[in-house]
Computed example of a mutant assay.
Amino acid sequence: MVNLTGITPTVNTRLYAYGFIGAGISGYPTISLSPGQVRPVLAVLPVTSDGYITVFNAAGTIDVLADIQGYYFDTRM
């Protein structure tokens, strides 16, 4: 789980967060923001085998803060 915060975008934008390499961007944004807005969201994301996520900004520029809130293992694997 990650608390992802978009901070003061320059234009209307969407942030997409995902973990698997090759997964690509889904059709659903993790956060949608307006110019100047600061908005957090708690997201449950899969991560790469080495623990990374990718955050993609759709338009303009934006600062992003990501805080890991916790994790769990899939014991079925």
Score class of each variant (00 low, 15 high):
Val2Gln: 09
Thr54Gln: 05
Leu45Met: 06
Gly36Met: 01
Ala58Lys: 04
Ala23Leu: 11
Thr48Ser: 15
Ile53Cys: 02
Ile53Lys: 13
Ser34Ile: 05
Val44Tyr: 14
Asp67His: 09
Thr48Lys: 05
Gly36Gln: 01
Asn12Ile: 00
Arg76Tyr: 07
Gly22Pro: 12
Leu65Thr: 01
Gly60His: 06
Ile7Gly: 05
Leu65Asn: 12
Ala58Phe: 02
Leu15Thr: 09
Asp63Phe: 09
Asn57Cys: 11
Tyr18Asp: 12
Gly24Ser: 01
Val55Ala: 08
Gly27Pro: 02
Thr48Tyr: 09
Phe73Asp: 11
Thr30Met: 02
Gly36Leu: 11
Leu65Ser: 14
Ile25Phe: 14
Ser34Gly: 09
Phe56Arg: 10
Thr54Gly: 01
Ala23Pro: 00
Tyr16Pro: 03
Ile25Asp: 11
Pro9Gln: 01
Gly36Pro: 12
Ile53Ser: 04
Arg14Cys: 03
Gly19Glu: 04
Thr54Val: 10
Ile53Asp: 09
Pro46Tyr: 07
Val47Cys: 08
Arg39Trp: 04
Val41Cys: 04
Phe20Ser: 08
Asp50Pro: 03
Thr8Met: 04
Leu45His: 08
Ala58Pro: 00
Val2Trp: 11
Pro40Ser: 11
Val64Gln: 02
Ser49Ile: 01
Pro40Asp: 10
Thr30Ala: 15
Pro35Ala: 15
Leu42Thr: 13
Asp63Gln: 11
Ala23Arg: 08
Thr54Lys: 14
Asp63Glu: 14
Ile62Asn: 13
Ala59Glu: 08
Thr48Glu: 14
Ser49Pro: 13
Gly22Ala: 07
Asp67Trp: 06
Tyr28Gln: 13
Asn57Asp: 07
Val41Lys: 03
Ser49His: 10
Tyr18Leu: 12
Ser26Cys: 00
Met1Tyr: 08
Leu33Lys: 01
Thr54Ile: 13
Ala66Ser: 06
Val55Thr: 05
